[in-house]
């Protein structure tokens, strides 16, 4: 069902909270829009700490590297950022998106 969170072991927002409580700097990346074939639905999260550790996903695994790099910037500046990835981007998926998917990812610092 749409929008249903999994109570299972992969709970990015719970991870974000536990990292925050442990005194780590945390950024949260969220898929806010998708067009065409996107591997992760709107609302999906990737959480990142200041050392570049991350949990979750915003795509099939191909743009996470770029999002983590941007998240470092966001952690430093405190300013949220909107990222857009499409098939034409260097950093976007190289395989597996025959329909030409595009996603918008909101990256923000916690606190």
């Amino acid at each position: 069902m749409n929008g249903v969170f999994s109570a299972g072991q992969f709970d990015e927002l719970a991870t974000a909270e536990s990292w925050m409580k442990a005194g780590r700097e945390v950024a949260i990346a969220t898929v806010v829009e998708t067009w065409g074939s996107a591997p992760r639905p709107v609302g999906s999260h990737l959480v990142i700490d200041e050392d570049g550790n991350f949990e979750g996903s915003v795509s099939g695994g191909c743009v996470e590297g770029a999002v983590v790099t941007e998240a470092m910037d966001v952690l430093r500046s405190g300013e949220p950022k909107m990222l857009e990835f499409g098939v034409a981007d260097e950093t976007a998926w190289r395989v597996g998106l025959s329909c030409g998917g595009r996603i918008r990812v909101w990256v923000e610092r916690v606190g």
């Binding site: 749409n2 929008g3 969170f5 969220t30 829009e33 639905p41």
Partner: peptide, 20 residues
């Protein structure tokens, strides 16, 4: 369903968490 809404000049993102 989560998604963005535009109201006037503002854009909002609604991330919905509904229990299974």
């Amino acid at each position: 369903k989560s998604g963005t809404v535009e109201i006037g000049d503002n854009r909002f993102f609604l991330n919905v968490h509904v229990p299974p």
